[in-house]
Write a protein that binds this DNA or RNA. Structure first.
Length: 853
RNA sequence: GGGCGAGUGGUGGAACGGUAGACACGCCAGCCUUAGGAGCUGGUGCCGCGUGAGCGGCGUGUCGGUUCGAAUCCGACCUCGCCCACCA
């Protein structure tokens, strides 16, 4: 059977028939299998964020994937060896929710959905290499999560620590970035989040904080770079050590270190504030304040973040009754605790400078503490009482009330104060980050088991890593959710009981599993060798293909997946496992398609648009094209299928002008006649020019992912061909060339119809079949793009007044003569004279006039 | 409160500082059809004048500025969206 033999069964455009036929044919030929070891062509790795197999693939999925497929197809035509894999992010909560609701085990539910999504994804006609597929919930995959964990443990990049964590009543422990909004709610279920103390596993993301701030070697959208920068939140300043003064409750001498970005204001520190959870609070609290302090701490502990942050922002706190010594001037200042100081940031303690910090000012006003101004503009009146903190920063500020440092500029004074403290061993320049280490522990069964065993027999064994050769630590086949709690693994004796690898005595397995963002932090390497059993990745292939050339996906992953992946890459690089330090060279964030109601698409809202219906009605090519034609790729917006008919019509017209150039519509009496006054030669020349211009435009738009204008240009070309159909021009080679280029340009966008049109053209010409998708991308001829005649707009004082057709390449003087001889122009020169003529070559002429003297 | 982005016809959207509204949807008219949710051709920013070819005015959230010329650059403001939010 040849493809062409049964291609000519009909002359009508029937997408369903064409699409299934060509998809089968491409599969049969293995056209999208990438030879990863082929080094004869330049390589190009195209990656789109893999999906969670929720089972409800919607039009939003297509909105990312279709253009990514177009990129892959276009690169192939350009001669690249393209790798475009697909996989599933298969661990995670929805599977557990389904299990609890319906009794279907997470694994079964997930794999069933994977199967369904594979089917749906195949209708798109994308060039995925399904041989490279990765499913993260399979032991062959998560085994390597465990392997990486053990390497991190060896390299001090993983550690266990008691930590206050965000706790969701439904989902257990959450990462900081999984807590959303001012209400502090769970990103998954929307429940209010509270704090709890638990022993947790962390990855040391902060080790690479500085390098993660450097995006100079990658081309990422600026908003993502900014978000990551803010998330990492580097602040420069100083650490300053205050000594505690002795009193009748304690001997003094304890040191309290604070972090400040404003060491210049040290003379203005009139009190100190510790976070309620600060470890020194117990030791320092004066006997008379014990009760007040204890009740404040309990209250702060009980209060959820929402109460602390948004209900009322009024300051609250309690004095410890102890005092500290300001290291710069020996002054005794009171020590307070207050919940506006966070235990997790900086040192969990601050020096309060109410005159120059809004929060401190508010607190001082509430507590009746003194405010002392130490920074002022040169010559500014200082006596007036302050009504708000003066936190501004400008160049003409000087220190005041600051002893020997008075008179120095704020910046210079700050440096001098820090230097003086450093000399005395009481301070030093310091940098602090908002970024915290990555909390990976999850109290859930449907994730990668953390491969450690707690030895019960011999306390000296402690936490024992599972040896590499015992990996993977497998999940049980079924979970018993009836056992209670969020994590059935805890009650699964077969899973939990394991001998200590060190002493052989009784031991308990860790029952926490890893955050699913661990899975997604390295999956692109696995695609290159999904079946490899000796290592997580094939180093040679990774070196050949990575970093990923083009990554596409949603901006919602700006500070999670996209940051963790960068961290993983740097960590693996330092451990000698990969050669690159950044995972994704170029990133593009497409916009998000919302439901017709303007809300995020979700099953529960009932606003999910299923692509299957549209594909059944219009065909995949129309749906592909429509998604790209709607608007700029980075924009998104509420879903509406208004306009899809126009795109479908376009494909039908393309079909007609390519396959039936000499036909004509019965309703068009003039159809076979040329427009008045245009010769066949001129029309043919114009057509050729337009075809090459379109090719130029389309080629440029590919470089910028500007699908909508690309398609508009193809529509214009098609409309032109339609007008010339049935005329003498349709018999000319120019028409044939334009039609041929149209099919080639259509190929990446609407692959099925392009393949069909191509095969019919080849058959008609008696040529042997070859796929349009293995043709080279055509190149436009610059000499054919230039016009020899142009419509020149004429402006008078910047307003359009006339246009005139002129030969291209006239000199300014020649143009001037033509312009000034125009009747319409002369009408404007009755009461005015020309002051100046602005020539914009190839664009327009603008006459600037002034009233006649 | 802070950061980022966006405001253009009835609709989706075009427009290196240079003819605003490409290309579509929708609508109107004509044609072709037994029929059509099919197809072809033409028209369509708003207002005014003209029988007509056409002519004029107004127009890119608001107000200013820069420029021969601004949807585009700058400043202030309004509205919407996203991100962050007591981060010292």
């Amino acid at each position: 059977m040849t493809a062409t033999a049964n291609a000519r069964t009909t002359n009508r455009y029937e997408p369903a028939e064409i699409e299934s036929r060509w998809q089968a044919r491409w599969d049969e030929l293995g056209m999208h299998r990438t030879d990863l070891d082929d080094g004869s062509r330049p390589r190009y790795y195209v990656l789109t964020m893999y999906d969670y197999p929720s089972g409800d693939l919607h039009i939003g999925h297509w909105f990312v994937k279709v253009p990514t497929d177009v990129i892959s197809r276009h690169r192939r035509m350009q001669g690249y060896n393209v790798f475009f894999p697909v996989g599933f992010d298969a661990f995670g909560l929805p599977a557990e929710n389904a299990a609890i609701r319906s009794g279907v085990q997470p694994r079964e539910w997930t794999l069933r959905n994977v199967e369904k999504m594979r089917r749906q994804l195949r209708t798109m006609g994308a060039t995925w290499d399904w041989d490279a597929e990765v499913i993260t919930c399979e032991p062959e995959y998560y085994r390597w999560n465990q392997w990486f964990f053990l390497r991190f443990l060896e390299n001090d990049l993983a550690y266990r620590q008691m930590a206050p964590v965000d706790w969701c009543p439904n989902d257990g422990v959450l990462a900081r970035e999984q807590v959303e909004g001012a209400d502090r709610v769970c990103w998954r279920c929307g429940a209010r989040v509270t704090k709890r103390d638990l022993e947790q596993w962390f990855f040391r993301t902060t080790k690479y904080a500085d390098e993660l701030l450097d995006h100079s070697s990658i081309e990422w959208p600026e908003p993502i770079v900014v978000m990551q920068r803010n998330w990492i939140g580097r602040s420069e300043g100083a650490e300053i050590t205050f000594a505690v003064a002795p009193d009748d409750s304690q001997p003094g001498g304890d040191e309290i270190t604070v972090f400040t970005t404003r060491p210049d204001t040290l003379f203005g520190a009139t009190f100190m504030v510790l976070a309620p959870e600060h470890p020194l609070v117990d030791r320092l609290t004066h006997a008379s304040q014990l009760q007040a302090v204890e009740s404040y701490r309990q209250e702060a502990r009980r209060k959820s973040e929402i109460d602390r942050l948004s209900t009322d922002r009024d300051k609250s706190g309690v004095a410890l009754g102890a005092h500290a010594i300001n290291p710069i001037n020996g002054e005794r200042i009171p020590i307070w605790i207050a919940d506006y100081v966070l235990v997790g940031y900086g040192t969990g303690a601050i020096m309060a400078v109410p005159a120059h910090d809004e929060r401190d000012f508010e607190f001082a006003r509430w507590a009746g503490l003194p405010v002392r101004r130490v920074v002022a503009r040169r010559g500014e009146e200082l006596e007036a009482a302050m009504s708000e903190a003066y936190a501004a920063h400008s160049n003409d500020e000087v220190l005041v009330n600051s002893g020997d440092f008075s008179g120095y500029s704020a910046n210079d004074g700050g440096r001098r104060i820090t230097a003086e403290l450093e000399r005395r061993g009481l301070g030093r320049p310091a940098v602090t980050y908002r970024l915290r280490d990555w909390l990976i522990s999850r109290q859930r069964p449907w994730g990668t088991p953390i491969p450690v065993i707690y030895c019960q027999a011999d306390p000296s064994c402690g936490i024992v890593p599972v040896p590499d050769e015992e990996l993977p630590v497998r999940l049980p086949d079924t979970f018993d959710y009836a056992a209670g709690g969020s994590n059935p693994l805890v009650h699964d004796a077969q899973f939990v009981n394991a001998p200590c690898p060190r002493c052989g005595g009784a031991g308990r397995r860790e029952t926490d599993t890893m955050d699913t963002f661990v899975d997604s932090s390295w999956y692109w390497w696995r695609y290159l060798s999904p079946g490899l059993t000796s290592a997580p990745l094939d180093r040679q292939r990774a070196d050949a293909w990575c970093p990923v050339d083009q990554y596409t996906g949603g901006a919602e992953h700006a500070v999670m997946h996209l940051l963790y992946s960068r961290w993983f890459t740097k960590a693996l690089n330092d451990m000698g496992l990969v050669s690159e330090r950044e995972p994704f060279k170029r990133l593009f964030n497409q916009g998000q398609i919302l439901g017709a109601d303007g809300e995020r698409m979700s099953k529960s809202r009932g606003n999910v648009q299923d692509p299957d219906e549209l594909v059944a009605r219009y065909g995949a090519d129309t749906v592909r094209l429509f998604l790209m034609f709607m608007g700029p790729w980075d924009q998104g917006g509420p879903w509406s299928d208004t306009g899809i008919d126009g795109v479908h019509r376009f494909l039908r017209r393309a079909w007609t002008v390519v396959l039936d150039p000499h036909g004509r519509e019965p309703g068009d009496a003039e159809g076979d006649r040329m427009a008045a006054g245009v010769s066949v030669n001129e029309a043919a020349d114009d057509l050729r020019r337009q075809a090459h211009r379109t090719l130029q435009k389309v080629t440029e738009d590919h470089a910028n992912f500007r699908w909508n204008t690309m398609i508009a240009a193809l529509m214009e070309l098609t409309n032109r061909l339609m007008r010339l159909r049935g005329t003498e021009v349709a018999q000319r080679s120019e028409y044939d060339e334009a039609a041929r280029l149209l099919v080639l340009m259509l190929a990446p966008l609407a692959p099925h119809i392009a393949e069909e049109l191509w095969s019919r053209r080849l058959a008609a010409a008696g040529e042997e079949w070859r796929s349009v998708h293995s043709e080279g991308w055509p190149e436009y001829r610059p000499e054919l793009v230039a016009a020899d005649q142009m419509e020149l707009p004429i402006q008078v004082n910047g307003r359009l007044r006339d246009t005139v057709s002129v030969p291209a390449g006239l000199s300014e003087i020649e143009l001037e003569q033509i312009v000034l001889s125009r009747d319409k122009v002369r009408a404007y020169l009755v009461d005015a004279e020309v002051a100046r003529i602005v020539h914009v070559p190839g664009r327009l002429v603008n006459l600037v006039t002034r009233p006649r003297a």
